[in-house]
């Protein structure tokens, strides 16, 4: 399993934010995306996960290989911790094991309704979903938000186990996870340069109207 991304361009709200992006990620490795707010980390991750269309370029793995975890955890407050995870396990055709609950330190909380969890506990529940998905490539958007130091430790251990098992992880995060297997990809060089705004504005208006906007719109 290897993810190869070539010449990818992604857009947010019809505006191209990243272009010419190429990288590869092989099994057992992790890649951390870096870049200032608004550069398009979330957009890139959502595009890879198949939630939105790429403007251009290709990637070697289908979205079905990826387990996506965004800002929201998709937790149902009225279901218990175990019920939440059992649902996602059933969706992905796996079963919920005690090891999964243990890995994210949720065993003691299994029967608690999710609405009674703290923000950090909810986040751990959200990350435990990755373990039951059984998918090889984790695509994570700010996975450590609202986690305390101990929980970050659990998360890093889970990622490490996933990598050791032949998986891979792609994540956007601002903190240093101390993950030796992780390479860093700075997105700044791939920032889109202003072309391809919106089909109507640019697709046909490349040269402007009859010699420039002022000519036609003045």
């Amino acid at each position: 399993m290897e993810l190869v991304v070539r010449d990818l361009a992604v857009a947010r709200g019809g505006v191209r934010v990243l272009e010419g992006l190429s990288f590869s990620l092989s099994a057992g490795r992790a890649l951390v995306l870096r870049g200032p707010n608004g550069i398009g980390k979330t957009t890139l991750l959502r595009t890879l996960a198949g939630l939105q269309r790429a403007e251009a370029g290709e990637m070697s793995l289908p979205p079905e290989a990826m387990a996506y975890a965004g800002h929201a955890d998709g937790i149902k407050p009225t279901l218990s911790v175990a019920e939440n995870l059992e649902f996602w396990a059933a969706v992905h055709g796996t079963v919920l094991t005690g090891a999964v609950l243990g890995a994210m330190d949720l065993a003691a909380l299994a029967d608690r309704p999710a609405q009674s969890l703290s923000a950090g506990q909810k986040r751990r529940l959200g990350l435990a979903r990755l373990l039951v998905s059984g998918r090889p490539l984790w695509v994570l958007d700010e996975p450590t938000i609202s986690l305390d130091a101990a929980s970050v430790g659990l998360f890093v251990a889970a990622v490490r186990a996933h990598l050791a098992g032949g998986g891979a992880a792609l994540m956007a995060t601002h903190i240093d996870l101390g993950l030796a297997e992780a390479a860093v990809l700075d997105l700044a060089p791939f920032r889109a340069t202003g072309g391809g705004f919106d089909g109507i504005a640019d697709g046909g208006f490349g040269g402007g109207f009859d010699g420039g906007p002022a000519g036609a719109f003045g």
């Binding site: 959502r46 996960a49 198949g50 939630l51 979205p63 079905e64 990826m66 387990a67 996506y68 965004g70 800002h71 929201a72 955890d73 998709g74 937790i75 149902k76 996602w88 969706v91 992905h92 055709g93 979903r129």
Partner: peptide, 11 residues
């Protein structure tokens, strides 16, 4: 709550 994103990416 983000479940819809996850359902869309589910198998």
């Amino acid at each position: 709550d983000g479940s819809l994103d996850l359902l869309v990416t589910a198998p």
